[in-house]
């Protein structure tokens, strides 16, 4: 699914990556624990998280996450936005809660990380 479509479904605001709305995300992981992100995501995932610390971007970079969406209306600090620009990782921000965000994307046929074979 294209990032632009994710943005619509989640009624999200794009914070970083205006030029990346055509990017394809293949699956989604919702997590607030960074070790869980490292353990359970696969490359090219979209990460939904309530954590806005700049470490989220490091974690995303290491785990090859394609885009990050902050849930529950949380807005990241300037350092996080700066790191995301450096690494070229698009950032979204949705007012929806974690469960609702996951539910909406899942009902639009975007699978979870355990359902997709790693390339």
């Amino acid at each position: 699914m294209k990032l632009g479509q994710v943005k619509e479904i989640l009624e999200a605001e794009l914070l970083v990556g205006q030029e990346n709305l055509d990017l394809e995300v293949e699956m989604v992981c919702g997590a607030d624990l960074m070790s869980d992100v490292l353990a359970f995501t696969k490359p090219d995932s979209l990460l939904l998280t309530g954590l806005t610390h700049p470490q989220v971007i490091n974690t995303a970079e290491i785990a090859e996450i394609k885009a990050v969406c902050f849930v529950r209306g949380k807005r990241p600090p300037a350092e996080t936005i700066e790191r995301a620009k450096e690494e070229g990782i698009p950032l979204l921000c949705t007012p929806l809660l974690m469960y609702e965000s996951c539910g909406r994307l899942y009902s639009h046929d975007l699978p979870g990380c355990s359902q997709v074979e790693e390339k």
Binding site: P54, N58, I62, A63
Partner: peptide, 29 residues
């Protein structure tokens, strides 16, 4: 604040060495 800079730099280095993406991701994690 600086935490993770070692691992992210290592990952970039492994990318330049064209290490296989799966091995690269495991090493980075």
């Amino acid at each position: 604040q600086k935490a993770g800079s070692g691992a992210t730099r290592l990952k970039k280095t492994l990318t330049r060495l064209e290490i296989h993406p799966r091995a690269r991701r495991r090493a980075a994690i």
